[in-house]
Design a binder for these strands. Sequence first.
DNA 1: ATTTGCCTACCAAACGTTAGGTAAAATGGC
DNA 2: GCCATTTTACCTAACGTTTGGTAGGCAAAT
Lengths: 203, 203
Amino acid sequence: MAETLTINRKEQIMQVAARLFKNKGYEATSMRDIAAELGIEAASLYHHIKSKEEILTAICFDMANRFVTALKEVNDIYFNAEERLRMAIQYHVQISCDYLDATAVFLNEWRSLPEPSLSEFKKMRDSYEKQFRIIVKDGETEDIFDNVDEKFAALTILSSVNWIHQWYKADGNMNPSQISKKLADIIIGGIRKKLITDPHYKP
Amino acid sequence: MAETLTINRKEQIMQVAARLFKNKGYEATSMRDIAAELGIEAASLYHHIKSKEEILTAICFDMANRFVTALKEVNDIYFNAEERLRMAIQYHVQISCDYLDATAVFLNEWRSLPEPSLSEFKKMRDSYEKQFRIIVKDGETEDIFDNVDEKFAALTILSSVNWIHQWYKADGNMNPSQISKKLADIIIGGIRKKLITDPHYKP
DNA sequence: ATTTGCCTACCAAACGTTAGGTAAAATGGC
DNA sequence: GCCATTTTACCTAACGTTTGGTAGGCAAAT
């Protein structure tokens, strides 16, 4: 979550919670843990938030909306499949790096969402994944991508980008733009149509 | 875990626990949950196992050893980097599919391991990842792989194979061998050296 | 005077686990 | 095969601790 000069207590709670949820897991993080990080008592958190579940729900749906909105933008601005895929990966990587903690929570802790949020979340996630499938399918139609199983390709793409929260460091030697370019190169290189004149190519 | 005709109670506990840990998470799964699945009382579990943590530790280290052993075999049997990488992916995929529940626990629940198991686990995991890096590096030396950042490539490879537990179904339309071949094709296709005669290639 | 944001005290429920007991199964001697 | 003894695998009851959360109070800020 983006840093501002002064943030209110609720926002502090969300940020600390996201960090602790990422590192320990939602279930293993107590309200007393969160409060201690903020230098207050657990009961005081309830002045600002309704419940522990409210925190998790907010983090997960905030991230879901970011990813969905970014992908919509990609589809609105770009037209050919390779560009869309590159940009989709780039946006996804950028958001993941900008919101590392919340992304980790989004990816790993949704199982603890209460119903009906859980079902709703799964729908959003499935819809997001389907968009990647459509892009791959369009690439095949445009004769630029191999005839891969587009569900498989989409899952592979998403799985490779969804691990960044485990190793990315803002002060590391790769920035989000470089990461997304390298990732896109590998993935797109892997699903792009090959010519038989390529002596390294084995069908 | 492989199915045998009759398994003892301890093995039943491990299997049920792995399934529940995968679906609900370790922390959110109580001993009463596990016992209920087996039709007994939670206190009865302690006749067969020492503690909840013992279950998690056993699952995680059992899987770690499987992956490590398989990779060692790959390195002993195969010699060129592409073959090693293909086989490493194949073994990894096969094990993941054979032990879906335990793999998910291995990948997602290690954070709850007690010390010193946690530190030991991280070492094993880092060592396993380093082996993938060596394979990629060797491929560059053999002039078959692009000059990619081998840490990045290894992480990308592992991230793409480590999502299978989320969507693989034994009765689906792809078996582990097909999955590993497709995955290896995409990944290796993505990191393989390209010729400038390839008209689709943009440096 | 009212609002805000914290505190302390407390609650009911849930947790992993221990201890003692008992019935059924297994074992070994005859 | 029978029987006494031992072992096994469960049960109930209970423990100490932790959890998410409520309620009332108070001091500082508005």
